[in-house]
Structures are given as structure tokens and as C-alpha cells.
Simulated assay, not measured.
Amino acid sequence: MSCVKAFTLFVTHYPPLCELEQVYPEHVSNFHMAFLLNEPDITTDAGDGEVQPEFITFLYQLTKAAAGRSYGLNVARLADVPDPILHTASHKARELETMVNARRKYKKLLSDLWSISDKSSLVKWLQSNS
């Protein structure tokens, strides 16, 4: 009798884990539940730039690849989470996305800088990043 030693990790809101598939393609695969977006994002008239989640329909079909973005607020709305909580969560999600994007940019700059081995390349890098 053979034994399958499968390890499954189910994560809904930690996109950096998706990068593990690139590092360990023989051991890690990304999947998501297929869905349909029924409405475009709608910006409220409150003047705060708040974006209401579009209406999402989950198809309950496992699909290869990571989802393009998080739909946690959509799921929370389907679960009848009160609007004030959704508003706060949306604001915090935007803050976190801004912070993560800044860190990724900083990491790329450091990586690029670390790979420079001569003065002329350093001068070109400095000119293009100033």
C-alpha cells in the first residue's frame, strides 16, 4: 500500500505565499475558486474615494493559478457584515496594499543595486532612479 503525503495549505488573504510556486514548482501549486464579477467597482458619492466591492458569484470550481486579487470584502458583504465594518476594512486594505507595493519597489531597487559591479553601471542606475 502506498502512502500519499499530501500537505495542503488553504490561505485566503496572504498573496506573498503565491510566490512559493515559482520557488518550488515541483511541490507547490496555486489554485483559486472560479468566480464571476457581476458589476464593476462603484465609487461612492461620499467624496472619500471609497470603492464598494462589486457583486461576486463563486462557481465552486477549483481553478489552477492564484486569484488576481483578494475578494475578501466581497465575501464579507455576502456574509452580511455591516457596512461600517466593510468601509473600515476597505480603508485598511488600501493602506496595506500601498505598504506592500512600497516594500516590493524598495526590495527591487536594492536587488538591482546589489547586482551592479562597475562605476558606469552605478551612474546609469542612479540617473534612472532619481
Rank of each mutant, 00 (worst) to 15 (best):
L78M: 14
L78V: 01
A79C: 04
A79Q: 05
A79Y: 07
A79M: 09
D80T: 07
D80S: 03
D80Y: 09
D80N: 05
D80E: 06
V81C: 06
V81W: 00
V81Q: 12
V81M: 13
V81K: 12
V81G: 11
P82Q: 04
P82Y: 12
D83I: 08
D83C: 00
D83P: 10
D83S: 07
P84T: 11
P84K: 04
P84W: 00
I85G: 10
I85T: 03
I85E: 07
I85M: 06
L86G: 10
H87E: 13
T88V: 10
T88Q: 09
T88P: 06
T88R: 10
A89S: 02
A89E: 02
A89Q: 04
A89N: 01
A89G: 01
A89R: 06
A89V: 02
A89I: 02
S90D: 04
S90R: 00
S90Q: 10
H91G: 03
H91P: 01
H91S: 10
H91W: 04
K92Y: 11
K92G: 08
K92H: 15
K92N: 14
A93N: 00
A93Y: 10
A93V: 13
A93H: 00
R94Y: 13
E95L: 10
E95Y: 08
E95W: 02
E95R: 09
L96S: 07
L96C: 09
L96E: 13
L96W: 01
L96H: 08
L96T: 12
E97S: 09
T98W: 07
T98H: 03
T98K: 05
T98D: 09
T98L: 08
T98P: 03
T98Q: 07
T98N: 12
M99K: 05
M99S: 10
M99F: 14
M99Y: 09
V100H: 00
V100I: 06
V100P: 03
V100S: 02
V100Y: 11
V100A: 00
V100F: 05
N101T: 11
N101D: 15
N101M: 06
N101H: 01
N101Q: 12
A102E: 07
A102N: 09
R103V: 07
R103S: 13
R103P: 05
R103K: 06
R104M: 04
R104Q: 15
R104F: 05
K105V: 02
K105Q: 10
K105D: 12
Y106C: 15
Y106Q: 15
Y106M: 15
Y106G: 13
Y106W: 14
K107F: 04
K107G: 01
K108Q: 15
K108M: 08
K108A: 14
K108S: 13
L109C: 08
L109F: 08
L109G: 02
L109E: 12
L109P: 04
